Amino acid sequence: NQESVVAAVLIPINTALTVGMMTTRVVSPTGIPAEDIPRLISMQVNQVVPMGTTLMPDMVKGYAP
């Protein structure tokens, strides 16, 4: 099972992602793959992401799977 990126904290809208904001977990449905965390650093979320929420591609500005 592939791990997906999950919010480790509440991430406010338009916040640039940092390593500490993200964790990984096997979830269903799957979100952004864990191995993409290095690509996500400094990208901004386009909505509020509650802690424990799986990051989906459409939540991150400029992210393309």
Results as ranks from 00 to 15, higher is better:
26 V>L: 11
30 T>W: 13
2 Q>E: 14
13 I>Q: 12
40 L>I: 14
44 Q>Y: 10
23 T>D: 06
14 N>E: 12
28 S>K: 03
53 T>E: 08
34 A>Q: 11
7 A>L: 02
32 I>H: 01
18 T>Q: 11
28 S>C: 14
56 M>W: 04
45 V>Y: 01
3 E>L: 08
48 V>D: 04
35 E>C: 05
21 M>K: 03
19 V>A: 14
38 P>F: 07
41 I>V: 05
23 T>Q: 11
45 V>R: 00
25 R>F: 08
31 G>I: 03
54 T>D: 01
53 T>P: 00
49 V>S: 01
50 P>H: 09
24 T>P: 04
16 A>T: 15
7 A>G: 04
5 V>R: 00
51 M>K: 13
13 I>H: 12
22 M>Y: 02
17 L>T: 00
7 A>E: 00
31 G>E: 02
56 M>Q: 14
55 L>Y: 01
33 P>T: 06
29 P>W: 05
65 P>G: 11
42 S>F: 08
60 V>A: 01
12 P>Y: 07
40 L>Y: 02
2 Q>M: 11
18 T>Y: 05
16 A>C: 15
49 V>T: 04
46 N>L: 08
41 I>Q: 14
18 T>S: 11
26 V>E: 15
44 Q>K: 08
28 S>G: 05
15 T>R: 07
64 A>M: 12
26 V>K: 04
42 S>G: 12
26 V>R: 03
17 L>Y: 01
25 R>S: 05
24 T>K: 12
3 E>W: 05
7 A>H: 00
31 G>T: 02
47 Q>I: 13
1 N>H: 04
51 M>T: 15
39 R>F: 06
52 G>R: 05
21 M>F: 06
52 G>A: 04
62 G>K: 05
43 M>R: 13
40 L>H: 00
14 N>D: 13
24 T>W: 14
60 V>K: 01
10 L>M: 14
62 G>L: 08
45 V>I: 12
50 P>A: 13
58 D>R: 10
43 M>L: 10
49 V>P: 00
46 N>K: 08
23 T>G: 14
63 Y>D: 03
16 A>F: 14
51 M>N: 09
19 V>Q: 09
59 M>T: 04
13 I>C: 05
50 P>I: 06
58 D>S: 15
59 M>N: 03
6 V>I: 13
23 T>E: 09
29 P>I: 06
29 P>L: 15
23 T>H: 14
47 Q>A: 15
9 V>E: 05
9 V>R: 14
16 A>H: 14
30 T>R: 06
8 A>I: 06
41 I>G: 03
47 Q>K: 15
8 A>N: 05
10 L>Y: 08
65 P>D: 08
31 G>M: 03
24 T>A: 13
2 Q>A: 13
39 R>N: 05
6 V>G: 02
9 V>W: 07
29 P>R: 05
54 T>N: 02
10 L>P: 06
59 M>K: 02
57 P>T: 15
22 M>Q: 01
16 A>P: 12
62 G>P: 06
36 D>A: 15
28 S>T: 14
44 Q>L: 15
55 L>A: 01
21 M>C: 03
17 L>R: 00
64 A>N: 12
26 V>N: 14
65 P>E: 12
20 G>Y: 12
14 N>I: 02
29 P>Y: 10
17 L>H: 00
62 G>E: 09
53 T>L: 07
62 G>W: 08
3 E>V: 05
37 I>N: 02
30 T>S: 09
42 S>N: 12
65 P>R: 05
21 M>Y: 10
2 Q>W: 04
12 P>S: 09
11 I>L: 08
44 Q>H: 13
64 A>H: 11
56 M>P: 01
55 L>I: 13
14 N>V: 02
41 I>T: 14
29 P>N: 05
63 Y>S: 03
48 V>N: 15
22 M>V: 13
44 Q>T: 15
48 V>M: 11
61 K>A: 11
20 G>H: 12
63 Y>C: 03
52 G>L: 09
49 V>E: 00
47 Q>V: 15
27 V>I: 11
26 V>C: 07
45 V>C: 03
15 T>H: 14
14 N>R: 13
56 M>H: 08
37 I>D: 01
57 P>I: 05
42 S>A: 12
8 A>E: 05
30 T>M: 14
17 L>E: 00
7 A>T: 07
62 G>D: 15
45 V>F: 01
64 A>W: 06
58 D>N: 12
45 V>H: 01
12 P>Q: 10
47 Q>Y: 11
34 A>H: 11
40 L>S: 00
50 P>G: 07
54 T>G: 02
22 M>G: 01
39 R>L: 05
1 N>F: 06
11 I>P: 00
12 P>N: 12
52 G>P: 01
39 R>Y: 13
45 V>W: 01
42 S>C: 07
33 P>H: 10
39 R>M: 09
60 V>E: 01
43 M>W: 08
30 T>K: 06
34 A>E: 08
46 N>Q: 11
28 S>N: 11
55 L>N: 01
46 N>F: 07
41 I>K: 05
1 N>I: 07
16 A>D: 07
35 E>D: 08
65 P>L: 03
60 V>N: 00
19 V>H: 15
57 P>V: 09
11 I>W: 01
19 V>W: 12
43 M>D: 04
50 P>E: 10
34 A>L: 03
50 P>S: 12
49 V>R: 02
33 P>I: 09
62 G>I: 04
56 M>V: 10
61 K>D: 14
13 I>W: 08
12 P>L: 07
25 R>G: 15
35 E>H: 06
51 M>Y: 11
42 S>L: 12
10 L>F: 13
33 P>Q: 07
25 R>W: 10
54 T>L: 06
14 N>Q: 12
3 E>M: 08
39 R>V: 03
54 T>V: 10
54 T>A: 06
52 G>N: 14
36 D>K: 14
40 L>A: 01
18 T>W: 06
5 V>E: 00
12 P>V: 04
28 S>I: 07
40 L>G: 00
24 T>F: 11
54 T>E: 02
18 T>F: 08
50 P>F: 06
7 A>I: 02
47 Q>C: 04
63 Y>E: 03
11 I>S: 00
56 M>S: 08
13 I>G: 09
4 S>N: 02
3 E>S: 04
51 M>E: 13
42 S>I: 02
22 M>E: 01
38 P>D: 15
10 L>E: 13
12 P>R: 09
28 S>Q: 15
58 D>M: 13
12 P>F: 05
38 P>Q: 15
5 V>L: 04
4 S>T: 05
26 V>W: 07
46 N>P: 02
50 P>V: 15
5 V>I: 12
3 E>D: 11
5 V>D: 01
64 A>P: 05
34 A>T: 07
25 R>Y: 08
47 Q>L: 11
2 Q>S: 14
4 S>R: 02
12 P>A: 13
14 N>C: 13
59 M>I: 04
21 M>E: 02
27 V>G: 05
59 M>Q: 05
29 P>H: 06
46 N>H: 07
